[in-house]
């Protein structure tokens, strides 16, 4: 089915995603005064920097034909670890940051190993990981831990000025660097290509002698690491650790990746698409804020409708290329 996607068709979802973003931004600009400004655009990045980071990790997982449900909880756990180490153990950020990053990395590595060595389904394993991470963060504390530390305040508040009186945050820089590295990895390293190969057909990848084991474990490790990184960015953003942070974030992430044009069955998609996918989710929220009278649940309904549109679009593409393959 997906095997028959041809190159030109494959890029169509990405084109559609970008077109949709442009369309939505123009719609907002025409409808609301103050919408059409560089800062509104940049705010999309500032408010969703952490989402970009996890969406990048999730893209690799989904490209390989898997799924990672644990990312939202890992954000919460990372924020808890960072907060408690900083506030309760009074450790320096030089220790706190690496330790926090290790949290998700290790969890991801364990998940990847379980999935690979015991042939368990990613869905179930990362579901367990999701419970585990959230449970652990509650074990650290049920309450919110506010962070009051110069390093975190600096990361939260410093603005990097851009021409025209605009600014971005440090988190945005981190997110963009992550995205750039990820695009390079996806297209110009063997690891990246192996991810696509596994998503196309794991059996073939194995028979072709590709390092499937290493790659699969690495994918989940990477996703775990990025989730932790996103957790730190989220902590900078919220300046607190809390077990309920990022509740349901895995769904937003998956939605962003799908809207970004990646096939959920794996094997086709782009990291850049996922970034645009995140921006689309962001712009929906921005529009709802600008509208003022709309309630928050319209966000969910809108995301649902967009998901539907993109999924049907993917189906139509597959159908058309199947037809083409049939006659050709």
């Amino acid at each position: 089915m997906i095997n028959r996607l041809s190159l030109d068709y494959k890029q169509l979802p990405l084109v559609a995603t970008i077109a949709l973003f442009v369309l939505m931004f123009s719609f907002g600009s025409l409808r609301y005064t103050g919408f059409l400004s560089t800062q509104v655009f940049l705010n999309l990045f500032i408010d969703n920097a952490f989402l970009i980071v996890i969406a990048v990790g999730m893209t690799f997982v989904i490209l390989s034909g898997g799924i990672d449900l644990s990312v939202g909880s890992v954000i919460a756990l990372t924020s808890m670890v960072a907060a408690s180490l900083t506030m309760e153990a009074q450790l320096s950020p030089w220790i706190v940051v690496p330790v926090s990053l290790l949290v998700g990395t290790i969890l991801g590595m364990i998940q990847g190993s379980l999935i690979h060595f015991y042939n368990l389904q990613p869905f179930i394993v990362t579901l367990a990981g999701m419970f585990l991470a959230r449970g652990l963060s509650y074990l650290i504390s049920v309450e919110t831990i506010s962070i009051d530390h110069p390093f975190f305040s600096y990361m939260a508040n410093s603005q990097i000025p851009l021409p025209g009186n605009n600014f971005i945050s440090i988190s945005v820089v981190i997110a963009l660097i992550v995205a750039a590295i990820a695009i390079f990895i996806a297209h110009f390293t063997n690891f990246g290509r192996t991810v696509y190969a596994i998503g196309g057909s794991e059996q073939s990848a194995l028979l072709m002698g590709l390092p499937v084991t290493r790659t699969k474990i690495l994918i989940y490790t990477l996703s775990g690491f990025l989730a932790s990184l996103a957790g730190l960015i989220f902590t900078f953003y919220m300046l607190s650790g809390y077990g309920l942070h990022a509740n349901g974030m895995e769904l937003d992430t998956i939605a962003a990746v799908v809207i970004g044009g990646t096939l959920l069955t794996g094997g086709a998609g782009y990291v850049a698409g996922s970034v645009v996918g995140v921006l689309i989710l962001g712009i929906i929220q921005t529009i709802i804020v600008f509208e003022g009278t709309l309630s928050s649940w319209w966000t969910k309904i809108a995301i649902g409708v967009l998901l539907l549109l993109f999924i049907v679009l993917q189906r139509v593409i597959v159908w058309r290329s199947e037809k083409k393959a049939g006659t050709g």
Binding site: V258, W297, K300, G304, L307, I311, R315
Partner: peptide
């Protein structure tokens, strides 16, 4: 009928359905 993978098809309702319930 449309041939969408189940996990995606039901994800739509999972997201939108809660919105509808809140509505």
């Amino acid at each position: 009928r449309v041939g969408v993978q189940p996990i995606v098809a039901t994800l739509i309702l999972m997201v939108a359905g809660r919105g509808v319930a809140q509505l």
